[in-house]
């Protein structure tokens, strides 16, 4: 089977999953205790106000009808109107998504740049002093919540040394590279703690593999063995690991954006919760799930490209 067929099958699987995600979000929003209408209007609302609001939100129709409407809306990326900001949810998301995408992409690049060399050193010197130090650092940073890493960087590098802005974003792409560096580093540090641990294990496994020993036995230079045989195989593990951690990356972005006051979708999510803006929360959850699905798909495609066994 070729790569395209695999991707087509994955795409179908993902489409099915997204519909189920929509169902889950719909169920959450409609059947959990807590009446969004009452929350929006407060206890002193008149019956007429309540009826109006229920009609506006479509709550006066049957559940099946409501889910069908929700699916249709989701498919056309229309998530209704933000109650607090009086604009379509989708325009809010479109405004803010690029910043979040930029933040997470920078974080992934930084995380790989941090974790991969350290994992390499630790695995090559397994049991040595460098390995021990690296393992202690990753152990401790595994127990550091993202917001705390962000605060430490803010206090030291931004507020203390004034190397970076304390928050917000710039006016163009290049300014953003600068403004988003510290938040991206925050996210990268928290991601690389997990990445480092898993990658070290994966690298040790690769280094002990027969094919690495055989490559050495062929008389190849050490750097050829490492750069060609070890690295190629380690890349596959890295991509797989990144795919597995994309969910925690998005979760981390929500927190990081709050810490650094970055107007991305994560910050929007938190603000909307406090503004009781359910349409936005619902739409964002949906969009984020779709984005995660796309990343899963991309990881599958990359694996198929890097690992000839996958497309077999």
């Amino acid at each position: 089977m070729n790569i395209l067929a695999i991707l087509a099958r994955r795409l179908l699987h993902i489409a099915a999953t997204v519909v189920l995600v929509a169902l889950l979000i719909f169920v959450l929003m409609h059947f959990l205790p807590g009446d969004p209408v009452m929350m929006l209007l407060g206890d002193r609302a008149s019956d007429e106000q309540i009826a109006n609001m229920r009609h506006r939100l479509g709550f006066d129709r049957s559940v099946v009808e409501q889910f069908w409407e929700f699916l249709k809306m989701t498919a056309s990326l229309q998530f209704g109107e933000s109650v607090s900001m009086k604009v379509p949810v989708i325009s809010l998301i479109v405004d803010r998504l690029p910043i979040t995408l930029m933040l997470t992409s920078m974080a992934v690049v930084l995380a790989v740049l941090i974790a991969a060399p350290l994992a390499f050193i630790a695995a090559l010197r397994q049991g040595g002093i460098a390995d021990a130090i690296i393992r202690v650092i990753s152990q401790v940073s595994l127990s550091m919540p993202v917001f705390y890493i962000g605060l430490i960087l803010l206090i030291t590098l931004a507020a203390g040394l004034r190397w970076f802005p304390v928050g917000g974003i710039g006016e163009n792409f290049f300014q953003n590279l600068y403004y988003l560096f510290l938040p991206a580093l925050t996210l990268a540090l928290s991601l690389s703690a997990i990445l480092l641990r898993n990658l070290r294990e994966a690298l040790i496994e690769v280094l002990q593999a027969d094919y690495v020993s055989f490559a050495t036995a062929k008389g190849l230079m050490r750097h050829t063995v490492l750069g060609r045989h070890v690295l190629r195989n380690a890349w596959i593990s890295t991509i797989t690991l990144l795919g597995l951690h994309v969910g925690s990356l998005v979760g981390g972005a929500v927190i990081t954006e709050t810490v650094f006051a970055i107007p991305g979708v994560g910050r929007l999510m938190i603000d909307s919760i406090f503004a009781r803006d359910y349409a936005v929360v619902q739409g964002l959850t949906m969009i984020l799930a779709v984005m995660v699905s796309i990343v899963f798909l991309a990881v599958d495609a990359l694996q198929a490209l890097l690992d000839p066994r996958v497309s077999a």
Binding site: Y211, A217, K218, L306, D307, P308
Partner: peptide, 21 residues
């Protein structure tokens, strides 16, 4: 010396050959 003067073959060719090359 490895490969040039003294060479090795292993028991399990599936694991001794690099799967991605």
């Amino acid at each position: 010396v490895r490969g040039r003067e003294v060479a090795v073959i292993y028991q399990e060719p599936m694991t001794a050959l690099d799967p991605v090359l």
